[in-house]
Amino acid sequence: MPYVISFAVFAFSVLTLIDIITKRDDQVNHLPKLVWVILAILIPVLGGVLWWTVGREWPAREPRDHGWRGAAPSAATGGIRIVDDRAPRDVRDLRSTEQQLADLEREIEADRLRAELARRRAERGE
């Protein structure tokens, strides 16, 4: 019996460590990934339970149709998809960070050019 408990704790710890290591940094809550790894190693059961309950970012789930009033969710919303603003960044915006930064730089440059054009027009009296 003690071997079964020891094996279960070991398997749970290994599964927890694999899950922590394979998650991206933006999918980790409350503490840095390295701290979660250290917690899972030093305090295997408690660290694992904390990781699975509060440390891990769970993917957003699609609403299920439970047949309420016989209408499917798409019919109930008129075919409109409802977007939850509380969803993680990677769910709302599928662009990479580099793409987002490049878009932001283009917007800043365009605003700067518009301001320069407006200033020059004002100088000429247009």
Score class of each variant (00 low, 15 high):
Met1Tyr: 07
Met1Pro: 11
Ser6Ile: 04
Ser6Phe: 15
Phe10Leu: 05
Phe10Met: 13
Phe10Tyr: 08
Ser13Gln: 04
Ser13Ala: 04
Val14Asn: 06
Val14Met: 01
Leu15Arg: 12
Thr16Met: 12
Thr16Arg: 05
Ile18Arg: 09
Asp19Gly: 00
Ile20Met: 02
Ile20Thr: 02
Ile20Lys: 01
Ile21Pro: 02
Ile21Val: 11
Thr22Val: 07
Thr22Tyr: 06
Thr22Ala: 09
Lys23Ile: 11
Arg24Ser: 07
Arg24Tyr: 14
Asp25His: 13
Asp25Glu: 08
Asp26Leu: 08
Val28Thr: 07
Val28Met: 14
Leu31Tyr: 10
Pro32Gly: 14
Leu34His: 15
Val35Glu: 02
Trp36Gln: 13
Val37Gln: 01
Ile38Arg: 14
Ala40Trp: 05
Ile41Ala: 01
Ile41His: 03
Ile41Met: 07
Leu42Ser: 10
Ile43Val: 12
Pro44Phe: 00
Leu46Pro: 05
Leu46Asp: 15
Leu46Asn: 15
Gly47Phe: 00
Gly47Arg: 00
Gly48Ser: 14
Val49Ala: 13
Val49Phe: 15
Trp51Tyr: 05
Trp51Glu: 01
Val54Phe: 07
Glu57Ser: 15
Glu57Pro: 01
Glu57Asp: 07
Glu57His: 15
Trp58Pro: 06
Ala60Tyr: 01
Pro63Ile: 08
Arg64Asp: 08
Arg64Lys: 10
Gly67Ala: 03
Gly67Thr: 03
Trp68Cys: 10
Arg69Gly: 04
Arg69Glu: 06
Gly70Asp: 09
Gly70Pro: 08
Ala71Phe: 10
Ala71Lys: 15
Pro73Ala: 07
Pro73His: 13
Ser74Ala: 14
Ala75Glu: 03
Ala76Phe: 06
Thr77Tyr: 03
Gly78Asn: 12
Gly79Tyr: 14
Ile80Arg: 12
Ile82Val: 08
Ile82Lys: 10
Ile82Met: 11
Val83Met: 13
Val83His: 03
Asp84Ile: 12
Asp85Asn: 13
Asp85Phe: 15
Arg86Ile: 14
Arg86Asn: 10
Arg86Asp: 00
Pro88Trp: 05
Val91Gln: 11
Arg92His: 07
Arg92Gly: 15
Leu94Asp: 03
Thr97Lys: 05
Thr97Phe: 04
Glu98Tyr: 09
Gln100Val: 03
Leu101Arg: 10
Leu101Gln: 11
Ala102Thr: 10
Leu104Pro: 01
Leu104Phe: 00
Glu105Asn: 11
Glu105Thr: 12
Glu107Ala: 15
Ile108Asp: 02
Ile108Ala: 08
Glu109Pro: 04
Ala110His: 15
Arg112Asn: 08
Arg112Thr: 01
Arg112Ser: 05
Leu113Glu: 10
Arg114Ile: 09
Leu117Thr: 15
Ala118Arg: 14
Arg120Met: 13
Arg120Lys: 11
Arg121Cys: 09
Ala122His: 02
Glu123Gln: 08
Arg124Cys: 06
Gly125Pro: 00
Glu126Asn: 07
Glu126Val: 10
